[in-house]
Design a protein around this nucleic acid. Sequence first.
DNA 1: TTATAATGTAATGTATACTTAACATTTTGT
DNA 2: ACAAAATGTTAAGTATACATTACATTATAA
Lengths: 68, 68
Amino acid sequence: MLKNRVKELRARNNFTQSDLGKLVGVTRQTIAFIEKGEFSPSITLALKLSKELKEPLEQIFWLEEEIR
Amino acid sequence: MLKNRVKELRARNNFTQSDLGKLVGVTRQTIAFIEKGEFSPSITLALKLSKELKEPLEQIFWLEEEIR
DNA sequence: TTATAATGTAATGTATACTTAACATTTTGT
DNA sequence: ACAAAATGTTAAGTATACATTACATTATAA
């Protein structure tokens, strides 16, 4: 399962969802969906987020094993 | 524009496209498309590729400016 | 307190990632 | 040289990322 720290890092940079969306070229709803973990963005978008959030990719997105 | 080193790293690991596809859970055609740069995989798939190719994500995929 | 900005969320539509199937060409091993 | 494996490639279908619109709720600032 894919986890991420976008919400935390966005807050740290004082960006609103709209701000970040504009910076990376998507809508604020797309940012909201990503923060909720509702889908797995393309690596292109993930790389743009990494740049704007000033954090390495692997420290923003990572895979976590499912518990069963 | 998204660039990648999947083909090179797959060869280095002696994987066929089918091998790598099975390891990460996609078809060999999907691997072929990625190697050709025809689409931008999800970060979930990219993370799996990074694991199997034993290389950090940013050293497999990166964004390059367009020349105009 | 009241207006405004920011966020949550849901519905519907579009673009594109990914699958399946098929066949041709190239490479590899015997 | 020959067979088998690997790769190139294309078409058509499905799943999902992302857009757009809309409205409700929560946070922030005057």
